[in-house]
């Protein structure tokens, strides 16, 4: 078990190195000279040269990479070109906003979709099953940003129950903050329930056909004991992997939801930075999100043996 964890941890290191190289290389391909961008249109040629030297842009690429990654490891992601702020605190601020919404949404979506998918599998081809399959296929096909706009239209504009746009930090006013995140969270819950329910159903169907389920019934266990004690863990394992995947993907995918509801989150930070060619911010955000994504998948990998002890062998 310990060896399994160490192996998994070790395997993440080369991935993270490659990710950082990929981000670095990508940023070097962004058109335009960062030094010139930083100085603006009124810069004199000599100033640009000096700036380039100051930013280390005259060094060979490999050296630039090493300098950059060294800084990153000490927590220095550089400064925003647009407003001179430090990049890391900026990212962490925005991450606090996005992560609350994403975590809430994925938790609620899993809590609804996993049982729904499994019960549908257990009553395969019943009306309830057809209902779950149809609903999840439809939800899977609706773009989150459109669903967000529609919910906003219905609950914000016509019914007037909920605020339309904006964000209040939870630390400031909890009740108010909750009111503002309801619509974005509900939108994401609906959209992400689709794939999770389908996955839960598919793996539960696979498990329900296995011999040990019949064996459990032959022991005289009640149907609910068969489902929860014998089927759940095994059927949930692949779904957990998907949930981890959804969680990680949403950190970037949430950009569209933050755009719909005008929330100052991580996704919006990235998109705005891309518009502004604010490459230290783009670079930092991409690295940060990819890092979180790798970590989430790593956590899923480590939890997995609790559901399926075979993987440690």
């Amino acid at each position: 078990m310990v060896r399994f964890i160490l192996t998994r941890l070790a395997s993440a290191v080369p991935t993270l190195i490659l990710v950082s190289v990929a981000v670095f290389v990508m940023m070097r391909f962004i058109p335009g000279d960062p030094a010139a961008l930083m100085l603006g249109d009124l810069a004199k040629p000599g100033q640009v040269e000096a700036m380039r030297r100051q930013m280390g842009l005259d060094q060979p690429l490999a050296v630039q990479y090493l300098i950059w990654i060294g800084n990153v490891l000490t927590g220095d992601f550089g400064h925003s070109i647009a407003n001179g702020q430090k990049v890391l605190p900026l990212i962490l601020d925005r991450f606090a906003v996005s992560s609350v919404i994403v975590l809430l949404a994925v938790l609620v979506a899993s809590a609804i979709a996993v049982p729904a998918g499994m019960l549908a599998a257990w009553k395969q081809d019943s009306l309830g099953d057809i209902g779950v399959v149809a609903t999840s296929t439809i939800l899977l096909s609706i773009p989150s940003f459109w669903l967000g706009l529609m919910l906003m239209m219905i609950f914000g504009l016509y019914l007037g129950w909920l605020p339309i746009v904006g964000y209040v930090p939870f630390s400031k006013d909890f009740g108010h903050a909750a009111l503002y995140v309801i619509l974005p969270v509900v939108t994401l819950v609906l959209v992400e329930s689709g794939p999770i329910a389908r996955m839960a159903r598919a793996s539960a169907i696979e498990v329900s056909r296995l011999e040990y389920i019949t064996h459990a019934r032959a022991k005289g266990l009640s149907e609910s004991a068969v489902i929860w004690r014998h089927a759940f863990k095994n059927a949930f394992a692949p779904t957990l992997t998907l949930i981890g995947f959804v969680l990680g993907s949403l950190l970037a995918g949430i950009a569209v939801i933050e755009t719909v509801f005008t929330i100052p989150g991580l996704g919006r930070l990235l998109v705005d930075a891309i518009y502004a060619r604010d490459y230290p911010v783009v670079q930092g955000t991409m690295l940060f999100v990819a890092f979180i994504y790798v970590v989430v998948n790593l956590i899923v990998d480590m939890v997995y043996p609790l559901l399926d002890p075979r993987v440690t062998a």
Binding site: A216, G220, L221, H230, N234
Partner: peptide, 25 residues
């Protein structure tokens, strides 16, 4: 009634030992 008999009165052994014990328990 069946559940009271299954296991207690009538036991059953299956063909494939690789899949008839629950791998997670």
């Amino acid at each position: 009634g069946l559940r009271a008999i299954r296991g207690a009165e009538i036991g059953m052994v299956f063909q494939e030992p690789m899949v008839s014990l629950n791998p997670a328990i």
